[in-house]
Design a protein around this nucleic acid. Structure first.
Lengths: 344, 344
DNA sequence: AATCTTTTAGAAAACGTTATAGTAATAAAT
DNA sequence: ATTTATTACTATAACGTTTTCTAAAAGATT
C-alpha cells in the first residue's frame, strides 16, 4: 500500500518547486536538461501518474462519455456498445456505461448524476418507459447546458440532437416483400404490443408491402403480444385457425419462439412456413433452422454515434449542426426461407 | 447553452462569500435561515449542481468503480454486468465499463488509465491473452497502490485479491453424472482448445465423473476446437466414427452448434443423443429442443463481486481480508435429456 | 458598564494539476 | 559599462468544492 505519488511530493523530495516539476514532466523547454532528467527519473522510479481528476478540473474536459443502454441483455445493444467502445478507445475516451433497464426514473437519475462535469457528452437510447411517459425534459436540459447528446435506435422528434437510427419501415417492407416473392401468400406478423415507435414503423413497413402488392391485410394474422407465454399460445391459435405460409417476426426473441412453436408442431421450415426475423443476433444464427433475418448493423450504429459525438465534443462540428443518420439494413438469407422466386 | 452555474457565481450574484454559499447549500447551522433560503432559492432557480470532479478531488473518493469485461457479446458477462450494476446503483456508485476484448494490451492500458484517481476500485475478469501470457503485474501494482480489486469468473492464484468464481469442476461432474444416470453410456465432450483454466476444470469434472462410475475416458469422444467451422466438421466426424448417446458441451455456443449438427443429421434429441450445455443463456433456452444446461448464476456473481468491492472501498472490511467466493450452479432440466433415471 | 457567549459570516488552505507572469543570474550586444 | 537577451527556475492564480480558523456583531450575564 504505497499510494500514488503527487507532483508536490516530487517537488519536496528534489527541493524544487512544483511548477518546475510540472514543466519537467511535460518536457518544457524552460527547464534544463539536467533538471528534467533528474525529475523524470524520479517520477518514473516512483511510478508517478498524473491525477486525472485534477487534470479534468483544469481542462474542463473529462475525455469521458456517458452511455445509456436500455438493456444490456439484448444482443443488439451489446453490439452497439461494442461499436461505441471501439471508437472511444481509439480516440482516447473512456465510457461510463449505465443501464436504464427501460426505466424513466433510472434514466433521469443517471443523466442528472453524470451531467455535473463527469462526462463530456452522452450517447443514449431512450428507455421504453420514457417514450411511454413522453417527458424528455432531462434530455432538453442537458442539451441546454451545452452538453452534446447523440441518440441511437430509439429517438424522439422533441429532442433536438444528433440521431442514429435503423431504417425500420424500409427494412420491414423489404422483408415482407421477400416473403411474397418466395411464394408466400398468407404472411403473418408477430409484433410486440408495446407502443414503441420502432415497432410501429416495422408494422407499417409490413402493411405497406402487402398493400403495394394488392394483398389485403388480415388482422387475424397480426399478433401483438406482451409476454412470452402468451405468445406461444397466440401463435398456436393463429396456426390452428388460419392458413399461414410465411411469418415476419419483429424482433429476435419473437423469431426464436416462433421457430420453437413451428418445430414442436413438426411444421417444415421453410417448405410449409417461411420465417424472417428482425435483428440478426446469435439466436437467429444458431436456431434450427438458422433464420433468414433483417441484419441490423449494430456495430456500425455504435461507431457512427460515437464518432459524431466526439466530433461535437472536440468542436469539429458546431453544436447546432444536427443530423439524423439512417443505418441501412441487409437481409441475410439463411435456411428459414425458400430459394425460389416469383418476379413481380 | 447556459452552461452550469458554480458556487462562485452564486456568491458573486448574492454578494456573499463562497464559503457562505457552500455552507448554505449544505444546510449548515452556521448560516442564518434567511441567508440560507436566499441562497438555496437562487441555486434551485439556476439549477445549480455541484461539480463531481471537484468533490472527488476533495474527498479522494470518486464513487466510481471500474469494470473489466473480457467480452460483452457473451451473454454470461452481460448478465454479470447487470448484477454489478444493480448493486452499484443502489449504493450510489457509478461504473466505468471497459471491454478488454480478450486483449492483454487493452487490459493493461485500461487499468493504467483508470488507476489515476478516476476510480475507487476494480471488478475484473482476466482476459484470455493475459492468462496465456501469464503476466499479472498490472493487477499487482494496482493492489500495491491500495486500490481494491475483485476478480470474477477467470482468476489467477498469483493475484492476491478477492475472487468470485463458478464451481466449475463440481458442475461439470454433476452434468456428466446426470447424463450417465439417464442411461447414456458413451458421453462425448465438446471443449475449446484454448488453455483457460476454466475449461480445464470443466474437463476435469467430466473425467472425474466418468472415473467415479468406472467408465474409461475415450479420447475420440473429446473434441477440442478453435473455430466454429472446424467444430461442425469435428462433431460430424466423431458421430460418423463412434457410438455416442450423450454430449456434454463446455460452453453455450458449443451447445448451440452441436444441436444444429444433430438436427441436421436428423438425430432425435434426447432419444438418440442427449445434450447438456454449460451456462444457461438465451441460446440454450430458445434452441430446438431447449437444452438442459448447467445454470451459472451470472447475476449473483456480479452482485457478490460488487458488494465485496464496495465493502472494501468503504473500509468495512480490511484491505487484506481476502476471500474467494464460490458460486454454486444448478442443472436446469429441459428437453435435451431423458427423464428416466438409473439409480447408481 | 464590562465581560462572556452565541450567531453569522468571511478568509484561507486544501485536493493535484497547469498556465501565466515574474525573478534572478548569466551571457550577449551595444 | 550599460542595456538587452537568454536561461532556468519560482510564485501565484485558477479549476470548484469543503473545511478550519478567524472575526465581527449581537445578545446574555454579571
Amino acid at each position: 500500500m504505497s499510494k500514488r505519488i503527487t507532483i508536490k511530493q516530487i517537488a519536496a523530495a528534489l527541493h524544487v518547486s512544483i511548477s518546475t516539476v510540472s514543466k519537467a514532466l511535460n518536457d518544457s523547454y524552460e527547464i534544463s536538461e539536467e533538471t528534467k532528467k533528474k525529475i523524470q527519473d524520479y517520477a518514473k522510479e516512483h511510478k508517478y501518474k498524473p491525477n486525472t481528476l485534477a487534470l479534468s478540473l483544469q481542462n474542463k474536459k473529462t475525455k469521458t462519455i456517458g452511455i445509456l443502454l436500455p438493456n444490456i441483455l439484448t444482443y443488439y445493444y451489446a453490439r452497439v456498445l461494442r461499436g461505441i467502445e471501439e471508437v472511444t478507445t481509439e480516440k482516447g475516451y473512456n465510457i461510463i456505461t449505465c443501464i436504464t433497464n427501460e426505466s424513466y426514473k433510472k434514466e433521469v437519475d443517471t443523466m442528472e448524476m453524470l451531467s455535473n462535469g463527469t462526462i463530456d457528452g452522452f450517447i443514449a437510447c431512450i428507455s421504453e418507459e420514457t417514450l411511454k411517459i413522453g417527458n424528455f425534459d432531462h434530455f432538453k436540459n442537458i442539451l441546454e447546458d451545452g452538453t452534446p447528446i447523440v441518440l441511437y435506435d430509439r429517438v424522439h422528434a422533441e429532442i433536438n440532437c444528433d440521431k442514429v437510427v435503423t431504417d425500420n419501415i424500409k427494412s420491414a417492407y423489404k422483408a415482407t416483400r421477400f416473403l411474397m416473392r418466395s411464394e408466400c401468400k398468407n404472411i403473418a406478423l408477430i409484433s410486440t404490443s408495446e407502443g414503441l415507435d420502432i415497432g410501429k414503423f416495422r408494422v407499417d413497413g409490413y402493411l405497406k408491402a402487402l398493400r403495394k402488392y394488392d394483398v389485403i391485410p388480415n388482422e387475424d394474422l397480426i399478433i401483438r403480444y406482451n409476454d412470452e407465454e402468451n405468445l406461444k399460445d397466440a401463435i398456436n391459435k393463429m396456426l390452428d385457425e388460419n392458413k399461414v405460409d410465411g411469418i415476419f417476426t419483429i424482433d429476435e426473441i419473437s423469431g426464436a419462439i416462433t421457430t420453437q412453436v413451428l418445430n414442436k408442431r413438426n411444421i417444415k421450415i421453410p417448405q410449409e412456413i417461411s420465417i424472417i426475423g428482425f435483428t440478426n443476433g446469435i439466436l437467429s444464427r444458431y436456431s434450427t433452422p438458422p433464420l433468414t433475418s433483417v441484419n441490423r448493423f449494430a456495430h456500425t450504429t455504435g461507431k457512427v454515434a460515437a464518432k459524431r459525438l466526439i466530433d461535437k465534443i472536440e468542436e469539429k462540428i458546431p453544436f447546432d449542426d444536427i443530423v439524423t443518420e439512417i443505418i441501412k439494413t441487409k437481409l441475410v438469407e439463411r435456411d428459414s426461407t425458400k430459394k425460389m422466386f416469383i418476379k413481380f
